[in-house]
């Protein structure tokens, strides 16, 4: 464990907590993409299957349980409790176009052709594009509530911090996983446009407005 990975995990934890709190306290999931949340639930379930096979540490296990729990809680809030506030019209990204290629890619490019490893690889590929429906929705609505932009900033930062963690681990532990690194770069690059808007607008107290 290193400071980059720890702050990345905490940023990720912050993001999922902000999201659940935002929906719970405002009793509304306006502006949130349910499709991205479904993709994240798939990411966590397929990646954390090793919860039942390998015990790494209390920290590792508890974080995995929290991420799976928070993502299912969010889906429950969005598609059941507050489904009246779910914005179907703007959440129209076709997630089949993300699922099919990532499944195929995971079958073709992986470290070991075993069930757990292919599912882990699929989860890594899917996570790199899972935010697209959310970013697509923000671009369609042309704006995002500030709490939603804080959620996106924390979520985007987590994988950016993981990039630093991988650089550190390459030099300090001579350890690297190319699949995770390449996907992590793609994932972080997808947020660049949003990061720019967040830093130039939201941090100055303005609302996140995309140029129409």
């Amino acid at each position: 464990m290193n400071i980059f990975r720890l702050s990345g995990d905490l940023s990720h934890l912050l993001a999922v907590i902000i999201l659940v709190l935002k929906i719970w306290t405002t009793r509304s999931c306006a502006g949130i993409s349910g499709k991205s949340q479904i993709l994240f639930a798939i990411v966590y379930v397929t990646r954390y299957l090793d919860l039942v096979t390998t015990f790494v540490s209390v920290y590792n296990t508890s974080m995995k349980v929290i991420f799976i729990g928070a993502s299912f809680a969010t889906i429950y809030l969005m598609y059941s409790k507050f489904k009246a506030t779910y914005d179907h019209n703007h959440d129209s990204f076709r997630i089949e176009f993300l699922l099919a290629p990532t499944v195929i890619l995971a079958l073709l490019i992986n470290q070991k052709f075993t069930v757990l490893e292919v599912l882990w690889t699929f989860s890594i590929y899917l996570e790199s594009v899972a935010i697209l429906p959310q970013l697509f929705m923000v671009s369609k609505t042309g704006e995002a509530e500030s709490i939603t932009s804080h959620y996106l900033f924390a979520l985007g930062s987590y994988r950016g911090l993981y990039l630093l963690n991988w650089i550190y681990r390459y030099y300090a532990e001579d350890h690297y996983e190319l699949i995770a690194i390449v996907s992590g770069i793609v994932q972080t690059v997808l947020y660049c446009d949003f990061f720019y808007l967040y830093i130039t607008k939201v941090l100055k107290g303005k609302k996140l407005q995309l140029p129409a």
Binding site: V56, K64, Q111
Partner: peptide, 10 residues
Amino acid sequence: DFKSSFHDEL
């Protein structure tokens, strides 16, 4: 070969 498939990160 367990090492390569062992992912200790979240």
